[in-house]
Design a protein around this nucleic acid. Structure first.
Lengths: 111, 111
DNA sequence: ATGTTCCCATAAATACGCTATGGGAGAGCC
DNA sequence: GGCTCTCCCATAGCGTATTTATGGGAACAT
């Protein structure tokens, strides 16, 4: 069984969602589309991961939601960052940046 | 502010270990120390994660092992990259690089 | 009417790191 | 001889997050 495909590293989905919502409220489908587009199709969010993640963020009060109608005239649930969510975004971006830099140092070729 | 500890993101441990072993054979304890040192203490590998990971890599034939004696005159198990492991390292470094770049694009501040 | 896209959602399987815990053996100090 | 510190290996149980697999409903184009 050759290699398992890993689209999203554990723990990075939340920050991607929060960042996306920092541009303004959006519904789930649009969030996934935005991340895909903005990452150059390198990060693909499965719906089975997306909706549990959104509910998780809701429970933590980092986002809030209300039903609405999408641009395509469909029933859609819009998510919006809360103040706590915006703060959390800063924390998670900092953590990612730090971690990515650290991994980069380890993986960097010899000097 | 003591030690800002950062959890290891799922899926990044293997590549860190493989990279470390690309410098030459090493035992578990030294692998953890190397990653800690090289990452500027940002990435700390718990032993409860390290040894299962090493056994995983063994099962996949990416590393091989033999018992020896450490620099401190202690019984130690040395791990060495196999050819398949070296190849796998290239794949995983590429995957990390690509993924990190993609996340970076999403997290980048406004245009 | 039929297929396609859009949109939401959950269960089961899976994966992997963390915490907690255990042990053994060399080295240095009293 | 004891004591403690550091080095080194290892496993079990837990928690959490992602993938896979499914399901459904509504709008729109053909």
């Amino acid at each position: 069984m050759p290699d398992p495909k890993v689209d999203v590293l554990h723990g990075t989905l939340d920050v991607l969602i929060l960042k996306t919502l920092s541009w303004g409220p959006a519904h789930g489908y649009a969030i996934a589309a935005h991340i895909k587009q903005r990452s150059g199709a390198a990060v693909l969010i499965e719906e089975g991961a997306l909706y549990p993640a959104l509910h998780r963020l809701l429970r933590k009060k980092w986002v809030e939601t209300e039903w609405g109608v999408s641009e395509n005239n469909r029933r859609a649930r819009y998510y919006r960052l809360t103040a706590a969510g915006r703060q959390r975004l800063r924390v998670e971006v900092a953590a990612w940046t730090r971690y990515a830099a650290a991994v980069g140092k380890v993986l960097k070729p010899a000097r």
